Simulated scan of single mutants.
Amino acid sequence: MASTSRSEDELGHKWDRCLSDTGIKIASGLGLGIVFSVVFFRRRPWPVAFGAGVGLGMGYANCQNDFQRPFRLGGKLVKVSSGS
């Protein structure tokens, strides 16, 4: 019996990866924004917002790329040499 993957399952896995990746990137941006705000910018709020925005933008771009990419099947490249 062949192992088949339903399209709903593949879409669900893509959404899970998308949301977790975006959440990690937003949290990382917030963390870096807080560190930069405290250390370099005398507790100004804009580095925190900037870091969260950059994280959200990176997560959105990764999700967009993941959803536009078709499902890839495994294979290998075979070189053909001329027998002359």
Results as ranks from 00 to 15, higher is better:
1 M>L: 09
2 A>N: 04
3 S>M: 10
3 S>L: 14
5 S>L: 09
5 S>W: 03
5 S>K: 06
7 S>L: 09
9 D>R: 06
11 L>Y: 12
12 G>R: 11
13 H>L: 11
14 K>D: 14
16 D>E: 07
17 R>K: 04
18 C>D: 12
18 C>A: 15
21 D>C: 10
23 G>P: 00
26 I>W: 01
28 S>R: 04
28 S>W: 08
30 L>E: 06
32 L>T: 02
32 L>Q: 02
33 G>A: 07
34 I>Y: 15
34 I>F: 14
34 I>G: 02
35 V>Q: 08
37 S>T: 01
37 S>F: 05
38 V>F: 05
39 V>T: 08
40 F>G: 00
41 F>V: 01
42 R>F: 15
43 R>G: 13
43 R>W: 07
43 R>T: 03
43 R>H: 13
44 R>N: 15
45 P>A: 07
48 V>C: 08
48 V>T: 03
52 A>F: 07
55 G>L: 06
56 L>A: 10
57 G>K: 01
58 M>N: 06
60 Y>W: 10
60 Y>G: 11
61 A>S: 07
61 A>C: 06
61 A>T: 05
62 N>P: 01
63 C>Y: 04
63 C>Q: 03
63 C>R: 09
63 C>F: 01
63 C>L: 08
63 C>T: 10
66 D>Y: 03
66 D>N: 10
67 F>S: 02
68 Q>S: 15
69 R>D: 14
69 R>Q: 15
70 P>A: 09
70 P>V: 05
72 R>P: 02
73 L>K: 11
73 L>M: 04
73 L>Q: 13
73 L>S: 15
78 V>N: 10
80 V>M: 11
84 S>H: 09
